[in-house]
Design a protein around this nucleic acid. Structure first.
Lengths: 115, 115
DNA sequence: CTAATGTAAAACCAAATGGTTGTATATCAA
DNA sequence: TTGATATACAACCATTTGGTTTTACATTAG
């Protein structure tokens, strides 16, 4: 079910779940941050963290499932690239929440001004 | 360890983990959205979802742990109130990621212009 | 061709998550 | 004072998560 819509974006509950879930891990956020500027292979990334290659691989699978990174084959390597589109989806939702809150404040202000 | 700082905000890895984790569930996001405009008791909220009172209570505990809602005693009730501050913390991080990505684009543009 | 490198995927494990039911306690209403 | 309501909390359970090791396969380098 689509729960949030803007001009150019439909967000299902599941999709939002996956994006936030993927962002809820320090290693995964670090991978996203890193690959937003510099594409890297899985091995490149695996070297940077104190865990097994397979563990990093799994993190990347989670990120890919959430659309936060994309994989691109390059010979025997897979280049991982951060995807700003998924970031924007999360931002869009949070912005909506902020507007909702601001709306309450505005109504309270109006109520006060009226008395 | 503090991983992200702005003028008025320090964000530890754990704190960010908790915020995103808490947001990674449809019921919890709904509770946040709802209580950002209208304070509600736990029972009020529990009535709205097809799960036990205790389950909703647990969701609220998770949200409170992430700072996304606050509890305020009112007689035998606890009023739950959404907290925009935690939303802003998440926004701040995502904005930083977007700027990082934009930075890469800017550098690529500069490189192209140079040749 | 062979060895080394890069990735994929399976099997396994402990801990965390998201739900349940049941029990205890506090407060309010009649 | 007693019954109903609101919350808290513990115990339990199935599934998911985040890690491991191992095995297999593809590709590149010498």
């Amino acid at each position: 079910m689509v729960v949030y819509q803007t001009q150019d974006m439909d967000l299902s509950d599941d999709e939002v779940d996956r994006i936030f879930r993927a962002l809820a891990d320090t290693t995964r956020r670090d991978i996203v941050r890193r690959t937003l500027t510099d594409e890297a292979s899985i091995s490149d990334l695996a070297h940077r963290y104190e865990m097994s290659f397979a563990a990093v691989q799994k993190h990347i699978t989670v990120l890919e499932g959430a659309g936060l990174v994309t994989k691109h084959r390059n010979g025997r390597e897979r280049r991982i690239r951060g995807n700003p589109e998924a970031i924007r989806k999360a931002q869009t939702l949070l912005n909506a929440y902020e507007r909702i809150w601001q709306g309450r404040i505005d109504r309270l202000d109006a109520l006060l001004a009226q008395n």
